[in-house]
Structures are given as structure tokens and as C-alpha cells.
């Protein structure tokens, strides 16, 4: 069956996302956009995934828990999981490896709100999620696989915070099987400029930081059944 997707969406737990990107609003907007499945991928954390999973269920959408990892090289990598518990365990692993801990007096400069179902604020994330994690790009694919997930280099056509911008080229030794490009990416041109990514498959993501940016029903994936496991299998194999 076909599932229309957007696997790159931020919530109010991400520094740079709008405050109205609450888990309930994100799920509601994904439903309005007529998506079948979506992932919540906040920077360095999956802590808003439990609330988002609840609301996705209410709207009848298939939810995929995730995060957007920022590696030591400041390369952004989507990490999608089949189980929310695995995503949360990986969040703990990443949290222990964050490289920057700004002093307490700077705390007022940002908001990183963790929500309970029903958009009830549970509290503010104490770690600074704007930091890179001390995890190298060459170990990322394996680490995420061992944690029960799938790692996908994010927006590789973007001029900053992407694998190609920060590292210059893709090396198959990094072990990824697919990557994400931005909604507006000209893939033909990307392949012409970067023959090194020819072996990779592509998905599109909105990287939505505001509700209106969540992708419309445009990109789909063929899956065997309507489960996060089947989504991950399809992404790994197709």
C-alpha cells in the first residue's frame, strides 16, 4: 500500500521551531495535509514523541518516532525508529554526548518545551539541544541501527549543516543507504554535481519548523503493512 509521508518535522522542543508546533498541532496539521504517516524529528531528542504518538493515533495517522541528530561534524542526520522506547533510549545516549553546556545564566535565551498529551507542558529540557553530539558521522549509521533505528543524512542539498556541505562528499564507508533532500531539490542537478551520492536513494522531507511548512500529500512510500516496522523496512530496502 501507498503511504504519503513527511519524516522531517520539528516541534516546540527544537530551539528554532515556532511555539505553536505542539505535538497535538503537528499531528493535526499532518492530518489536514492528508498525510498517512509522519515522523517527529526534534534536534537531539525524541522527548515529544510520546505525546505526538498519542495525537497521531487520535487522528488515525501512522506515527514514526525520531530525532534529528547533529553529529560531531555538525552534520544533521534523521534517525527514525520503530519503537518510541528505542527512540527515547537513543535520546539518552545522545544526551550524554552533547558537547556544549551553556552556563545557567544563558538559559533564558531559549525555550525547549516537553509536552504531555493534550499539549500540557511537562517542563523545559535542561540540556541545550543546539549542541552537536560527540558521535562521528562514520559511526552514526551503525549506532542508530544497533539502537533499533534507521539513520538518514538530512537535507544533503542544503548549504549548511548537511553531509555534503560540511564534509564535501559522500563516502560509501559511512554506510547510509538513503538520504533526504529538501522539498525543492533538483535531484538531477544534485547527481550531476555530486556523482558520489549516485548509489544512495532519496526521500523528501519538509524540515518544517512552522505548521504551514508541513508537507502536503505529495511523496509516498510503498509498504507491506501499516506499521512503523514496515516503514523502516521499506526505507531500508526499496
Amino acid at each position: 500500500m501507498k503511504l504519503y509521508y513527511d519524516f522531517h518535522i520539528h516541534s516546540c522542543l527544537s530551539l528554532c521551531a515556532e511555539d505553536d508546533m505542539t505535538p497535538a498541532n503537528v499531528a493535526g496539521m499532518a492530518s489536514l495535509a492528508q498525510l498517512d504517516t509522519f515522523a517527529l524529528t526534534d534536534h537531539q531528542s525524541s522527548k515529544n514523541c510520546p505525546a505526538c504518538a498519542f495525537h497521531a493515533g487520535e487522528y488515525g495517522l501512522l506515527f514514526v518516532p525520531g530525532m534529528e541528530l547533529c553529529t560531531r561534524e555538525e552534520v544533521h542526520v534523521l534517525c527514525l525508529f520503530a519503537e518510541t522506547d528505542d527512540a527515547l533510549a537513543f535520546t539518552g545516549y545522545v544526551g550524554e554526548r552533547l558537547l556544549v553546556h551553556p552556563p545557567a545564566e544563558k538559559r533564558a535565551l531559549w525555550r525547549q518545551t516537553i509536552m504531555l498529551p493534550g499539549d500540557v507542558p511537562q517542563g523545559e529540557e535542561p540540556l541545550w539541544l543546539g549542541s552537536a553530539a560527540d558521535i562521528g558521522i562514520y559511526e552514526t549509521a551503525r549506532l542508530v541501527r544497533e539502537a533499533g533505528g534507521l539513520a538518514i543524512p538530512a537535507h544533503i542539498d542544503r548549504p549548511s549543516s548537511s553531509l555534503l556541505a560540511n564534509l564535501g562528499l559522500y563516502d560509501p564507508g559511512m554506510g547510509f543507504s538513503l538520504c533526504e533532500v529538501t522539498a525543492g531539490c533538483d535531484v538531477k542537478r544534485l547527481l550531476a554535481e555530486h556523482p558520489d551520492v549516485r548509489g544512495l536513494r532519496f526521500i523528501r522531507g519538509s524540515d518544517a519548523h512552522e505548521l504551514a511548512s508541513i508537507a502536503d500529500r505529495r511523496y509516498y512510500l510503498e509498504v507491506e503493512e501499516r506499521t512503523p516496522q514496515a516503514v523502516l523496512r521499506a526505507l531500508t530496502q526499496t
Binding site: L15, C16, E73, E74, L99, V100, P102, L109, W110, G130, S131, A132, S160, S161
Partner: peptide, 26 residues
């Protein structure tokens, strides 16, 4: 590399970079 700048940059100094996204201000 923004995380290096946060930990190694000179407070009160000038920072020279080729990064031009909005995170630079933060």
C-alpha cells in the same frame, strides 16, 4: 563548527567565519 566556537571563541573578541545561517547569531 559552531560547537567549537561556543567552547573556544574569545568572549569580547571578533569571530571570523564562513557560516552565514541564523544560528551564527545565537
Amino acid at each position: 563548527l559552531l560547537s567549537r566556537v561556543i567552547s573556544r571563541g574569545r568572549p569580547g573578541g571578533v569571530w571570523i567565519t564562513i557560516m552565514n545561517n541564523v544560528n551564527v547569531a545565537a
